[in-house]
Amino acid sequence: MIHQHWISRHSGVLILLPSLILTAIFVYGFIGSSFFISLTNWRTLSVDLSLRDPLWQTYADLLSMPRFQADLRNTFVFTTLFILFAVSLGLGLAILLDRQLAGKGFFRNTFLFPYALSFIVTGVVWRWIFNPETGINLFFDFLGINQALESSGMSPLSPGWTTDPSVVFSVNHILSQVWPAGGDFQIEWGIPVALIPVAIAATWQLSGFVMAMYLGGLGGIRPQIRDAARIDGASEFRLYRSVIIPMLNPITISTVIILIHVSLKIFDLVFAMSGVGPGFATDVPAIFVFEMMFKAARYNLGTSASVVMLILSSLVIVPYLMHSLKTRET
């Protein structure tokens, strides 16, 4: 009887135990193991788990690699562009659909539809749309833009899209002025043009998700609030700008954090759409990790880059998780 009592008192923990053990091994154990490997000499196919001397040398190597510097720049630029595009478009869609409208459900379903697809499908199709030989560049011919440009002596408009190696708005000279060591960067700090099409494809896939989040929030705003603002004579534009969008702030924060989390680890879309790109213009840390681990057998370098990825996303996710679990308690 006492035995049975013990089981029922602890059955909660017993039921959780398998999942807790699996998480302890597969999440925390493996993270620890990756971190350990990043400190070792293991950089060929034969396993070598002796520690490097100095211990952090692999991280120093990693951060001084032009390719990884480009990856960090690309992650930063891609995240910024993607969030800017996806949040403004998603919010715009939600506001457009936030009214009496024939075919509202149809529009909503179409905008959200890409979210159900795999990043690989998205990448494969957008790769063709942004192919410089075909795709949207044909429209510039079709619409007569190129003929007009040529007849006025200018070169025809045919962007290289993901094949364009140029980096615009470079800030290297500013960096070198405020920070002398900044001149040592082997890469250009700016916006790689080739990343823009990738950000557009990612926006196509995820702006519907942003819209769905905002539509959920808009549905929760009581009609009295709108009525009150209208009675005060607020225009539709003022109503959204000054009343509704500020009320949606918590949703904006959740959405941005989820999108940052998607963007920091983005792999499949870039892999299928453009790969590393010309001069690593579209390379991202996830592809770097994949190639170091599964192509080049530079295991310590690959795991060190993965630890950098983990740190970057933890900086965003941990405060968010702590905050949302805490607010739910009360």
Binding site: F30, S33, S34, F290, L310, S313, V318, L321, E329
Partner: peptide, 29 residues
């Protein structure tokens, strides 16, 4: 439904696994 002391913390630990970039566990996996 059967919360116990520390269960919220365990839940947070479990949930973190959804948000990690899986690259960080790939080689050991």
């Amino acid at each position: 439904k059967w919360r116990f002391k520390g269960s919220e913390f365990l839940f947070a630990l479990l949930l973190f696994g959804f948000f990690i970039p899986y690259q960080a566990i790939l080689l050991p996996l």
